Amino acid sequence: MTRNCALLRFYRRIERALVPVALLIGWELFSRSGVLPPALLPAPSQVLLAWADWVFATDGNTQTYSGHWLQDVAASASRVFAGFAISTVLGIALGMAIGWSRTVERLIEPVLQILRPVPPVSWIPLAIIWFGIANKPAIFLVFLGSFFPVLLSTIHGVKTCDRNLLRAGAMAGGTPGKLLRHIVFPAALPSVFSGLRIAIGSAWMLTVTAEMVAVKSGVGYVLWDSYYFLRYDIVIASMVSIGLLGFLSDLAIKLFAGRVLRWQRGSTLQAKEA
Rank of each mutant, 00 (worst) to 15 (best):
Q264L: 03
L48K: 02
A39Q: 14
I14V: 15
T58A: 09
V35W: 05
V219C: 01
I25Q: 07
T209A: 14
W263Q: 00
A271H: 13
S191N: 15
M1S: 11
G173Y: 07
D233E: 10
I86V: 15
F56N: 07
A203D: 15
S122P: 06
K136C: 04
L152C: 12
V219T: 07
W69Q: 11
N135K: 07
G243N: 09
P190T: 04
V208P: 03
P190A: 02
V240D: 13
F193R: 11
E109P: 10
G67Q: 07
P110R: 01
K159P: 10
T88E: 03
S146K: 12
L115W: 12
R181I: 06
R116M: 06
V208A: 15
I108R: 01
Y65I: 00
A134C: 12
V121N: 02
R16P: 00
S66V: 02
P117G: 04
A57S: 08
R12M: 13
W123K: 03
I14F: 11
F229L: 12
L141T: 05
N135I: 02
A74Q: 08
G258E: 06
K159T: 06
L90N: 07
S226I: 04
V158W: 07
S101P: 00
A22K: 05
W263I: 08
P37E: 08
A237F: 02
R102T: 09
K272S: 13
A187P: 03
V35S: 07
P110S: 00
S101W: 01
Q270E: 11
M212H: 13
F148A: 04
S146P: 04
H182C: 02
L23R: 03
P38I: 05
S76M: 15
D72V: 06
A172D: 14
G243A: 09
S241Q: 01
R3L: 15
F193P: 11
R259G: 05
A75M: 05
V111M: 05
G169T: 12
R259Q: 14
M96A: 14
D72F: 08
M239W: 02
S238N: 01
N164A: 13
L151G: 06
L107C: 07
G220Q: 12
C5T: 11
L166F: 05
S217Q: 12
I236P: 04
A85T: 15
A138K: 04
M239C: 13
L180P: 08
G218D: 11
V192S: 13
K272Q: 10
S101K: 01
F148K: 03
S153F: 00
A203H: 12
W123M: 10
A237E: 13
G169H: 06
L151E: 03
V80E: 10
R265W: 03
T58W: 14
P117R: 07
F84N: 00
C161A: 15
W204Y: 09
V208E: 13
L144D: 06
L112M: 15
W27M: 13
I128H: 00
V158A: 05
I242E: 11
G157I: 04
N4G: 12
A199V: 11
W130K: 08
S146V: 02
V240C: 14
S66N: 03
D59E: 14
L115M: 12
W263A: 10
R167S: 03
F140S: 04
Y227V: 08
A199F: 00
E28M: 02
A93Y: 04
F247G: 11
F131H: 07
P120C: 06
